[in-house]
Amino acid sequence: MHAKRKIRFTKMHGAGNDFIVLNGIHQDLSGISQQQWQSLAHRQFGIGADQILLVEKTDRPDADFKYRIFNADGGEVEQCGNGSRCFVRFVLDQGLSQKNPLRVEVAHTVLTLKAHDDGQVEVDMGAPIFEPNNIPFIPNGLASMQEFHETLYALPLEHPAMHGSFVGVVSMGNPHAVQVVGDIESAPVLLEGAEIERHPAFPKRVNAGYMQIINRNEIKLRVYERGAGETLACGTGACAAVVSGIRRGLLDSPVKVHTRGGDLQISWNGIVNDVVQNVIMIGPAVTVFEGETEI
């Protein structure tokens, strides 16, 4: 029988996408199981969150901190845009660093984050990834069509009410399948998103994004996230949607993204001299409360 231990936590949100943030530098958080992460994120029996962010020391000379991300289902994932903004606010508010901007190690890369005086946080999200093997995405056997610079793929879905959706596929450190819909409110996000998330073309599952274009610099967005279901906002999803929209010739940078939890601003300058440019995201990061719990 394992002994119970108390851990300190901070509850935060970025445009309604909510997080449990844990200081893994000043408390021992080793040995926590997937089931325990799941229990902490449970909205009825735990603290409740879309994701859990674990702040740790880094061994990389080009980074100030490391953070790891666990979804509500307890599984670890590579990237979280809204979480990265909350991370920098947490680090500054907790006095873990006075540096601004900060560089933080995530699963496959180092992000640069800058807190603005107005409470917004700017994140250099790095360059989007289009190569299917690196997303990862297996397009074998899928029908496809070209729209401007973007290749769209038809995902055959099993649900009888659906006839397949053409999606743009991009990674922002985590995989996204983005489709354009006429009306965001009536889009089958919950029903279809769950099926797209586990589509066999995505060996590591995928985040399903639904984008309604208002004008060339403004969209509405809903995202069904891997391991979390629909969230009030998804930072990497906003980046992926804007990148896909620009590649399809439908949007111009910068783009205001309206999510159910708040607004994000995404900028991307495309591909310049064969170099894929980095995506810049600006949005809020808010501390809700702090507390202590037992696991």
Rank of each mutant, 00 (worst) to 15 (best):
L155N: 00
A228G: 11
L92A: 05
S144E: 13
S33T: 15
G262P: 05
S33F: 04
V242E: 02
E147D: 08
F137V: 04
A154F: 05
V91N: 05
A115I: 13
Q38V: 02
L96G: 03
N82I: 00
R247H: 12
G48S: 07
E218K: 14
D274H: 14
H176C: 08
Q94C: 11
R222S: 04
F87E: 07
E158R: 11
V91A: 14
L22G: 06
A187S: 12
F130H: 08
T109E: 11
V110L: 08
L157G: 03
C234P: 10
G141P: 02
V286F: 00
S39Y: 03
L142G: 03
K204D: 15
E294N: 06
V104M: 03
G249W: 06
F90W: 03
P61H: 01
E185A: 11
R226I: 12
I32Q: 12
K57E: 08
H42K: 14
A41R: 08
R260V: 01
H26Y: 07
Q265H: 12
N133Y: 04
P200L: 09
E294P: 00
M12V: 10
V55H: 04
V242K: 08
F19Y: 15
I129P: 00
V91F: 01
A41M: 08
H149R: 14
K11W: 12
V206A: 15
P101E: 02
L54C: 12
Q44C: 13
H258Y: 14
L264K: 11
L250R: 09
Y224N: 09
N217C: 08
A177L: 07
V206D: 12
V123R: 14
N278P: 03
G229L: 10
L251W: 07
I138R: 07
V272E: 14
L152Q: 11
V180Q: 09
N23I: 11
L53H: 04
I7R: 07
K66A: 04
G46W: 01
T112E: 15
I32M: 13
V181N: 09
K204S: 15
V189T: 00
G291T: 09
E122V: 15
G245Q: 10
I135T: 09
N71V: 06
M172A: 05
C86W: 05
G270L: 05
G14T: 14
A228I: 05
G245P: 13
L53P: 00
F9L: 12
A208N: 13
N100C: 06
R60F: 03
A201R: 09
V272P: 02
K6V: 03
I184S: 02
G229P: 11
L113R: 03
P156K: 00
M12A: 10
E56H: 02
G141S: 01
E76F: 10
G48I: 00
L29F: 05
V272W: 02
K256W: 05
D73K: 03
L152A: 07
V276I: 15
L92C: 06
V206N: 07
Q146H: 02
V169I: 14
A63Q: 01
Q179A: 10
R226W: 04
G16L: 02
H42W: 01
I266W: 04
V255N: 09
M162S: 13
L191Y: 06
G16P: 05
V257I: 02
Q277E: 13
I219N: 12
Q35K: 09
V242D: 06
Y210R: 01
T231V: 11
G83F: 00
Q146L: 11
G227W: 04
E105V: 11
I295E: 04
H163E: 04
L96V: 03
T10H: 01
I266E: 09
V104T: 09
P156Q: 00
